[in-house]
C-alpha cells in the first residue's frame, strides 16, 4: 500500500514559507548523503551537523506553514507526501553532491545568500518568520564560515583541488539567479515587509563572493544566463531521485514509527 500525495492550499504566505522550508530540507538531505562517506572524519561530522541544522530550520518553517494552511497537515506530510512538482526549492540545492568541491561550492553559494537572507528576515513584519530568522542567523554564520574556509583551501590548494573547485563554480553559478528572482506571487509579501527584498540581499552576497573567490584564486563566471523553474515546481531530474530515496519508507509503510 502506498500513501497518496497531499494537495496543499494556494496561499501566498504559505507558498513562500514552504519554498524556504523546501530549500533547507533538500539541501539538508543532500548533505546527509555524505554521512559515512566524507573525505575525512571531521568533515563527515561537519556536514552531518550542518545537515541537522538545515533540517531543523526546515521543520520550524514547515510547522509554521502548517499553522498558516490550517488543513491538518504536519511537517512530515509536507516532507514525505508531496511529489516533485509540488516542491518549491531553488534548483541549486537539489544538484547532486558530485565531488567534495561541488558540495562545498554549492554550500558556499547558498550559505552566503542564506546568511544575508536570514539577517534581513529578523526584521520581518511577520513575528513567526522573524523568530525563525533570529534562530537561523548564528547557524548560517558558521555554515558560511565553514564553506568559505573550504572554498579558499580548495581554490588555493593543489592544482587538482583548484581545477575541481573552478569546475564546480562554473557548473553551479547559473543556479544562483533563482536566489534573487522574485516570483510574481511574492511581490506583495516584499512590499508588506514580510519577505526580505532580494535586491537588498544581493550586495552582501556579491561582496562575500568577490572577497572569498579572490582569496581562493577562483574566477567568477562571467555568464549572466541563469537557470530557473524551482520556485514554480519545474525541477531538474535530480529531485525525483532524491525524493524517491527520502520518501520511500513513509510512503511504503504509512504511519511507521521508529
Amino acid at each position: 500500500m502506498a500513501t497518496t500525495s497531499i494537495a496543499v492550499v494556494d496561499d501566498r504566505l504559505f507558498a513562500a514559507v514552504l519554498a524556504r522550508a523546501d530549500d533547507a530540507l533538500i539541501l539538508g538531505h543532500r548533505l546527509s548523503e555524505w554521512c559515512g562517506h566524507a573525505p575525512m572524519l571531521e568533515e563527515d561530522l561537519a556536514l552531518a551537523n550542518i545537515a541537522l541544522d538545515l533540517i531543523g530550520q526546515a521543520r520550524l518553517l514547515y510547522e509554521y506553514a502548517a499553522t498558516i494552511e490550517n488543513a491538518g497537515h504536519t511537517e512530515d506530510d509536507y516532507a514525505y507526501r508531496r511529489d516533485p512538482h509540488q516542491f518549491r526549492n531553488i534548483l541549486l540545492v537539489e544538484q547532486p553532491n558530485g565531488d567534495f568541491a561541488h558540495t562545498i561550492i554549492r554550500q558556499y553559494l547558498y550559505s552566503a545568500f542564506a546568511h544575508a537572507f536570514w539577517q534581513a528576515m529578523t526584521s520581518s513584519a511577520d513575528a513567526a518568520l522573524a523568530a525563525i530568522a533570529a534562530k537561523s542567523v548564528p547557524e548560517s554564520a558558521y555554515h558560511l564560515r565553514h564553506a568559505a574556509e573550504w572554498t579558499i583551501r580548495l581554490g588555493d590548494g593543489t592544482e587538482e583541488s583548484h581545477r575541481r573547485a573552478q569546475d564546480a563554480l562554473d557548473a553551479l553559478f547559473p543556479y544562483t539567479g533563482e536566489m534573487f528572482a522574485i516570483p510574481e506571487t511574492e511581490t506583495d509579501l516584499i512590499v508588506g515587509g514580510i519577505l526580505a527584498d532580494p535586491a537588498t540581499i544581493r550586495p552582501a552576497w556579491t561582496a562575500s563572493l568577490d572577497r572569498i573567490l579572490a582569496e581562493a584564486g577562483l574566477a567568477k563566471p562571467q555568464s549572466t544566463w541563469m537557470q530557473s523553474g524551482g520556485r514554480r515546481g519545474r525541477h531538474s531530474e535530480h529531485l525525483g531521485h532524491l525524493l524517491a530515496e527520502m520518501q520511500i519508507l513513509p510512503r511504503s509503510y504509512p504511519g511507521a514509527i521508529w
Binding site: E42, L45, A46, A141, Y142, R145, H146, E149
Partner: peptide, 27 residues
C-alpha cells in the same frame, strides 16, 4: 568572532594555556 579562520584564542581547560589549536569545527 565569526571571522574566517578565526584565531581568537581558546584557553585550555586543563592547563589554561592559550597555545591551543582547532582540530575540527564540529565535535
Amino acid at each position: 568572532s565569526n571571522c574566517l579562520f578565526d584565531n581568537t584564542p581558546v584557553p585550555c581547560p586543563r592547563c589554561e594555556s592559550n597555545a591551543t589549536e582547532r582540530i575540527a569545527e564540529f565535535g
